[in-house]
């Protein structure tokens, strides 16, 4: 049973608990039919709750502490993985993990932001908020991929680059900007997947490439809804409205033409059924990588440039 239950998940959990309780008594009583009815009911409830999620509820799902993170996905989808550490200049940032991986016979470089599932791990991982050396490690690994013609897969999951004193001293902005420039011209395919939270430049810092996929219950925007509320409404209390205004869900980004596809999650969310979520991720990512690997390099880069050139909406005045 999950440790952490969101408000809108509660009715589902209550029913599930009831079913579990009845199961434990079912060898003494003949209640198999009733259990079956309840199971159908919980399934219907799950579907109806998940069909009507608000944007803020999706944000909450994207942040769920039981949700699979980068290392969970690595364990579930990679046949082999060796983590590579350090930026060769300052240190090793544990908020970004990366290394050499094999998935279904394809060798690739896999990089992702890493949160912790509990307080201890979160302190170690800085809550998934990278410092400059994290972005520089990611760049080192991307250059490694380019050198040996390996595709790059990045998994985005951060509430932002760390806003700290030392992060500024070591050039947080420069580290992100450098990565954008290098990802724009990296001569190997890059596939980006938002697996949880994609906040701002801290997400984009490992998030440029040839294909952007989003997990169904992930979000991606210029700022987190709470911070947006704090700045534009001058109060922390308008996060629901801010989430609506920002239009930050996978479906929104697909409609904006920024995301290329949505990876469906099992009903109930990736945090309830991580193995199924990982299977869905693998099923979407691999065809994309295979397709991009078949493109001539010049065409790959040209299409990447066109992809970003086309993003923007304006009008002309007389």
């Amino acid at each position: 049973m999950a440790k952490y239950v969101l408000e809108f998940e509660r009715p589902i959990f209550e029913l599930e608990e009831k079913i579990a309780e009845m199961r434990s008594m079912s060898d003494q009583l003949d209640i198999g039919d009733e259990i079956e009815v309840l199971e159908q009911k919980v399934e219907r409830l799950r579907v109806s709750v998940y069909e009507q999620l608000t944007r803020w509820q999706r944000v909450q799902l994207a942040r769920h502490p039981d949700r699979p993170y980068t290392l969970d996905y690595i364990a579930l989808i990679c046949d082999d993985f060796i983590e590579l550490h350090g930026d060769r200049a300052y240190g090793d940032d544990k908020a970004i993990v990366g290394g050499l991986a094999r998935i279904d016979g394809i060798e690739l470089v896999l990089i992702g932001q890493q949160k912790g599932h509990d307080t201890k791990e979160n302190l170690e991982r800085n809550f998934g908020m990278p410092n400059p050396e994290g972005y520089r490690k990611a760049l080192r690994l991307m250059k490694l991929a380019e050198k040996f013609s390996l595709p790059v897969l990045t998994l985005i999951d951060t509430q932002g680059a760390y806003p700290g004193i030392e992060a500024e001293e070591r050039g947080q902005a420069e580290a992100i900007a450098r990565n954008l420039l290098e990802m724009a011209r990296l001569r190997t395919p890059i596939v980006n997947v938002v697996i949880g939270e994609g906040a701002s430049g801290g997400a984009l810092g490992i998030g440029m490439g040839d294909r952007l996929l989003m997990m169904e219950n992930s979000w991606y925007s210029v700022i987190a809804p709470e911070s947006c509320s704090n700045i534009l409404w001058r109060s922390w209390d308008y996060k629901e409205q801010a989430a609506e205004a920002l239009r930050l869900t996978a479906r929104d980004l697909l409609e904006m033409g920024i995301a290329d596809g949505i990876i469906p999650e099992p009903v109930g969310g990736a945090h309830r059924f991580p193995a199924q979520a990982a299977e869905a991720l693998k099923g979407s990512v691999l065809p994309a990588i295979r397709e991009l690997m078949g493109l001539p390099l010049e065409m790959l880069i040209e299409r990447r440039h066109e992809r970003y050139a086309s993003i923007g909406v304006w009008t002309t005045a007389g």
Partner: peptide, 23 residues
């Protein structure tokens, strides 16, 4: 910074301008 009122579209302008600087 990026303009909040255009949300993800603003964020992507960071990528777009970087592409042009790469060129």
């Amino acid at each position: 910074g990026a303009r909040m009122m255009e949300a993800a579209i603003s964020l992507m302008q960071m990528a777009k301008t970087s592409v042009r600087l790469a060129q």
